[in-house]
Design a protein around this nucleic acid. Sequence first.
DNA 1: CGGACCCTTGATGATCCTCAAACCCAGTGG
DNA 2: CCACTGGGTTTGAGGATCATCAAGGGTCCG
Lengths: 250, 250
Amino acid sequence: MAPTRPTHSFKTPCERCPLRPLPHFREFNEEEIEFVSKFKKGELAADAGTTILVEGAHSAHLYTVLSGWGFRYKTLEDGRRQILNYIMPGDLIGLQGSIMGEMQHSVEALSPVSLCVFERDKLMGLYNKHPSLAFDITWMAAQEERMLDEHLLSIGRRTALERAAYLIAFLYQRGMQLKLFNGHKAIPITQQHIADTLGLSIVHTNKTLKKLAVRGLIRWQERTCEVLDGEQLAEIASWDGLGERLRPFL
Amino acid sequence: MAPTRPTHSFKTPCERCPLRPLPHFREFNEEEIEFVSKFKKGELAADAGTTILVEGAHSAHLYTVLSGWGFRYKTLEDGRRQILNYIMPGDLIGLQGSIMGEMQHSVEALSPVSLCVFERDKLMGLYNKHPSLAFDITWMAAQEERMLDEHLLSIGRRTALERAAYLIAFLYQRGMQLKLFNGHKAIPITQQHIADTLGLSIVHTNKTLKKLAVRGLIRWQERTCEVLDGEQLAEIASWDGLGERLRPFL
DNA sequence: CGGACCCTTGATGATCCTCAAACCCAGTGG
DNA sequence: CCACTGGGTTTGAGGATCATCAAGGGTCCG
């Protein structure tokens, strides 16, 4: 768990951003892309297991995930950990810190992650000069809120089996939207992460996942969760799914 | 549970908004207040128990709570309900619906509530002409996210007693910031609401609250929860509190 | 080959849910 | 005036769910 230091890397130009061609994202005009390009300060790469942002820190930066999986979490004093949400390509991280000062949660990489770095000081400039991008940021904050609402409903009111089914269906759908899977639909996550997301012990999580596996909905392999039937998982949780609205990113 | 129709009422001018003098809110310049004044379309009053916004609706409006208490919630198909967060004076509601179309949660009044009504169509104009107010909206979205993070940690990882203590301490602190109490610090809420917030059954909630009452931290009276020792409640939950940062509102 | 993770399984007990019944109080209609 | 009703609170009993403890297996890596 020792926080590894993330390392810098080269800068890919925003015009050739690998995310823009994805059908899941809205299109941007040249002016917007040019501004984002100037807003971008550099790139960062982090290995799996690296702590990207720490609770309590005053980060001077704002990040967009370029590739990889990660998660946001909080802990209680005695070490109990709650995973709040997962981060994937296109997601903005560090917004809370940029807007209100101190970070109130930590962020850790699940797989190797690369990030675009933006300077927090230029954020006000973005609001002044590019209302459409400012609106996008609010859009993303509202979207995060929506996901947290659903997670709360899940932890608070769904049974262990429904919770697990919901979580995996959720990660599966997000991965599909972003075309993160190649062949097997495998989510890079351990059962400990699942447990810390669902608010369950790892033992009970294991027994719950086994039930899903027995039904042929998932398969557990080498530190990943392979999704065999995403639709039925969503159905078990009586979850409507993410919807197909086009979304922005920076 | 029958949704009562909210009723219209007279319009109080923004310059004499009863919330502005509160030390908890940031100050606004004349230009900002003038713009908000034009942005405001009217007012709405809702009785306790009224459903203000319904999940699935495409609301054409955005609201700021002027007075009263309420809550946001989601339900599963079979009726299980999860309260997501509480709304109080200064809070913006309906933002998700305004930004992304459909509402994904409902809002209900806990006490008589009055609301400022804003037109959704003018929101883009706000982003174009008043970056500082646009930033404020993002600020509030980020703040909501922060509260949801804390709630998630609570439901996922705190024990029943800690959860109850956290929730009451949270509502207490918010009420104090907004100077909502006069004499007794009484929160207008039933044990059913507490149960639906904590993800517990009402029976177990009752037994848990009794433990807090026996310790002399709260007292239950006439459909309200009187807070006797907010500090110790926060301590039981090992919760840091809300902080004292000045906040914006519309 | 030992150690660190990760996954798995069984046993035991704590927590929490459901069912059931009763009480208080306010409002309502006869 | 009083019976009746409905919502909110309270309490006990029994059972389901879930946590904790414990132990063992697998793989990867130094």
